[in-house]
Computed example of a mutant assay.
Amino acid sequence: MENRGVLLVNLGSPDSTSIEDVRQYLDEFLMDKHVIDLPWLIRRTLLSLFILPSRPAKSAEAYRAIWTEKGSPLIVNSENCTEKLRSKTNTPIELAMRYGKPDMAEALSRLAKQPDIEEILLFPLYPHYAMSSVKTVIEQAKKLMQEMGITVPLRVHPVFYDHDGYIEALVESAKPWLEKDFDHLIFSYHGVPERHIIKDDPTGSHCLKDKSCCQKTSIAHKTCYRHQVYQTTEAFVEKAGIPIDKYSVGFQSRLGKAKWLEPNTLDVIKQVADQGARRILVICPSFVSDCLETLEEIGIGAKEEFIKAGGESLELIPCLNDHPAWINLLKQWIEHPLTY
């Protein structure tokens, strides 16, 4: 469709590393019912009494460790990607964040005002489906469009966790690191609470019912984050030729005391160190842009833990960011969107 506008949406970031800006960002982020899926009053109480009094200062310190002269790495990387994509197509493209700026409502408004626009393609920048990422972006976009009176049809680009083009781009971007001498490769995916997986199971009887649920054919896999990340891993190692004994999977970024997907990335890192690995690589395929969770949590924090456990070096493989293979793939999908 020639008269299509595209809205790329990523997670978001504080405006600055000040404690107040970080607090404001965390409040918006964690009050989302798809992130902390508890009743509003419980969420509000949890944040006001237990999270926001202390966490912003700690998070602000972490942001300061990776902040750039141009600002938040997530925003900078997303903007660089968007600009390179715009240079390759005449399709109107806007970038927004689910939380913070660039603002989604303003981006939708600009697209809706494009002359002769016939369709808005909503493109959540997440390879895998989760209620705390893809679902909340879709629902927020629909909500804003209704409130703003935007009647242009909304088309949602599907997740692409096992698409050949995505896997090829991921392997291509990682190639300079994979060609190095390393002992072990760890796939570190953003964690989610197990109850999110269960809630998104349309069958109500498949996900996490046994250890092999992700290997059994089911319609639940369309919205199963756990199944999808393992599919990404399997496709990547097959394409890259990584032996089965040379890679592991972990889940990072836990919050709260609920049961989250296992194993924890830090536990995996310590385990491979105990088993003799001295030079490891970590790749984070659930992120398309480097951010706090990759640069600070893995690139700094996990690296320190690995060295303490006896390791020599932990190298973080960068996200796709604005890699040429990723830009070309996005251009292809924008012009010829995937369908569910």
Rank of each mutant, 00 (worst) to 15 (best):
Cys224Lys: 01
Asn77Pro: 01
Ile300Leu: 12
Pro124Ser: 10
Gly299Ile: 05
Pro243Gly: 04
Phe236Thr: 01
Val171Gln: 00
Thr151Phe: 08
Asp322Pro: 02
Tyr247Arg: 00
Ile75Asn: 10
Val288Tyr: 02
Glu305Ser: 12
Ala325Asn: 03
Ala273Thr: 11
Ser48Lys: 10
Thr91Leu: 12
Ile327Val: 15
Glu28Asn: 08
Pro176Ser: 05
Val171Cys: 06
Thr232Arg: 01
Leu330Asn: 02
Gln146Asp: 15
Gln231Arg: 10
Glu238Cys: 00
Arg44Phe: 08
Ala57Tyr: 09
Lys33Cys: 01
Ser18Gly: 15
Met31Leu: 11
Lys58Cys: 03
Gly311Phe: 12
Val156Gly: 05
Asp103Glu: 13
Trp177Leu: 08
Glu139Trp: 10
His227Lys: 11
Ile51Phe: 06
Cys319Met: 11
Tyr166Val: 06
Val35Gln: 00
Asp37Thr: 04
Glu79Leu: 14
Glu79Tyr: 13
Thr203Met: 13
Pro124Gly: 11
Pro115Cys: 10
Gln275Tyr: 12
Leu11Glu: 02
Arg278Asp: 09
Asp183Glu: 12
Ser313Met: 10
Glu94Phe: 02
Ser212Leu: 14
Glu147Met: 13
Leu295Ala: 03
Asp15Tyr: 11
Ala240Leu: 09
Asp200Val: 03
Ile75Asp: 00
Ile327His: 05
Gly301Val: 04
Gln24Glu: 15
Ala220Thr: 10
Glu305Gln: 12
Ile36Phe: 03
Asp201Trp: 04
Ser248Gly: 04
Ser212Lys: 15
Ala62Arg: 14
Asn3Gly: 04
Glu61Phe: 06
Asn321Cys: 07
Leu208Tyr: 03
Thr45Ser: 13
Lys33Phe: 07
Trp333Thr: 07
Lys84Arg: 14
Leu46His: 01
Asp210Val: 06
Arg4Gln: 14
Tyr189Val: 06
Gly311Ala: 11
Ile269Pro: 01
Thr217Tyr: 04
Lys58Ile: 13
Ser72Cys: 09
Leu41His: 03
Cys214Phe: 14
Glu119Ile: 07
Leu111Ala: 02
Val229Arg: 01
Pro39Cys: 07
Met131Tyr: 05
Glu296Asp: 09
Leu26Arg: 03
Ser248Ile: 08
Ala325Gly: 05
Asn321Ala: 07
Pro337Gly: 06
Cys81Glu: 04
Glu94Ser: 00
Pro56Met: 09
Phe251Lys: 03
Tyr340Ala: 06
Gln271Ile: 02
Ile307Val: 14
Gly12Gln: 08
Met145Arg: 01
Asn328His: 05
Cys213Tyr: 13
Asp15Thr: 09
Glu262Lys: 14
Ile198Arg: 08
Met104Thr: 08
Gly100Asp: 09
Val282Ala: 08
Lys216Leu: 09
Phe123Gly: 00
Lys33Arg: 11
Pro263Arg: 02
Met131Ser: 15
Ala174Ser: 13
Asn321Glu: 09
Phe306Gln: 00
Phe182Lys: 01
Pro92Trp: 06
Leu316Gly: 00
Val171Met: 02
Ile280Arg: 00
Val288Cys: 01
Leu185Pro: 05
Asn90Val: 13
Ser13Met: 07
Asp201Ser: 04
Val268Lys: 00
Leu122Cys: 02
Thr68Ile: 03
Leu46Tyr: 06
Ala62Lys: 14
His227Thr: 11
Phe187Ser: 00
